[in-house]
């Protein structure tokens, strides 16, 4: 009889153990009740920005109701926007003045002082006049070309080819006149390294041609013939520089020649002095929560920064405080 009760006790205890284990396991794996990540990699500290540095505020968001936005440029009171396979011209009152369907999806736009517009579409280029008439159009000879940025400098068109890691130079008839790979005698400055498919160039108010060398987190100034003149290089995980594969992704200039840079990975837009110091932050990473792509940037006549948010399909306007 004693044995029997012993047995019953053992069985009951074990059964209780089984039930307890199941209940504990079940409740501890409910969503929101699960343990946190033991291997947490805290990149939050790199995402947070000293509020004192944020000297810009977001004033407006303009939603783009047509196709996927792809590129933005600003010239003389007008916004040039590539959306879907269209080129659109948008006036200062946010009315759409003109629109034109391009033969392929535009990838980047540049507008020059004469009012002519250069649109790159992957491996093709087109020159349009202010009425959006196509003046010249080119199929570039090699298919292995991916133009990620164009700029107009001294009446020549400079196109950054991210696949070939070189800058192609065309005249206004779209005949290729030159190309260069950014190699120079300076030992620590390598030719263009484009590890992530983002390669950008722009002309500053002093009419200098600046090109990114994103693999080494550098902004480089070249002569029109492709000779390196000077550069700034800032590699850092923090706000003071650029990090990762391919940054900055896009950049442009404020009227006084300071850089506006846009970065991927930890998405942020910031202002850098000509000597490469981070001066202020236009948009901290929180502004792009959930986004994945570095916004394209342009600067308008009032010195506001227009950021093209690809994920949310809108133009976001940041004003200095």
């Amino acid at each position: 009889m004693k044995r029997k009760w012993q047995l019953i006790t053992i069985v009951l205890v074990l059964t209780a153990a089984v039930v307890a284990v199941i209940v504990v396991e079940f409740t501890s794996t409910l969503p929101g009740r699960r343990p946190s990540n033991p291997f947490a990699y805290d990149i939050e500290e790199f995402r947070s920005v000293d509020p004192g540095l944020i000297k810009w505020k977001e004033a407006r968001q303009v939603s783009i109701d047509t196709g996927d936005p792809r590129a933005i440029a600003y010239y003389n009171g007008k916004i040039f926007l590539a959306a879907g396979n269209e080129l659109q011209v948008i006036g200062s009152d946010w009315s759409r003045l003109q629109r034109k369907t391009m033969p392929a999806e535009p990838s980047c736009i540049a507008v020059a002082d004469q009012g002519w517009i250069v649109v790159a579409m992957g491996n093709r280029l087109a020159v349009l006049d202010s009425e959006l008439e196509i003046l010249a159009e080119s199929d570039l000879p090699e298919i292995e070309i991916n133009i990620t940025s164009v700029a107009i400098h001294n009446n020549n068109i400079y196109a950054a080819d991210a696949t070939g890691r070189m800058v192609l130079v065309f005249n206004s008839e779209l005949q290729q006149v030159d190309e260069f790979r950014g190699e120079s005698g300076v030992s620590e400055v390598h030719g263009f390294i484009v590890p992530g498919g983002h390669f950008s160039l722009a002309v500053n108010p002093e009419n200098e041609l600046w090109i990114t060398n994103p693999g080494i987190h550098s902004l480089q100034n070249y002569t029109p013939s492709g000779r390196l003149r000077r550069y700034i290089q800032r590699t850092s995980f923090g706000i003071e520089g650029f990090s990762g594969c391919c940054n900055p992704v896009h950049f442009t200039f404020l009227d006084d020649g300071r850089f506006v840079t846009s970065e991927k990975g930890i998405i942020r837009i910031k202002v850098m002095s000509e000597s490469g110091e981070t001066e202020s932050v236009i948009a901290p990473p929180e502004a792009f929560a959930g986004g994945t792509r570095a916004p394209a940037v342009a600067v308008d006549d009032q010195g506001n920064v227009l950021a093209l948010d690809f994920d949310r399909k809108m133009i976001r306007i940041f004003e200095p405080i």
């Binding site: 047995l7 053992i10 069985v11 059964t15 284990v21």
Partner: peptide, 19 residues
């Protein structure tokens, strides 16, 4: 495997010795 599964298994086997 996970700890709880092992406990579960051993408990059942121990019970299974008598039942």
């Amino acid at each position: 495997a996970e700890f709880h599964l092992v406990i579960l298994g051993i408990s059942f086997l121990l019970i299974g010795m008598f039942v």
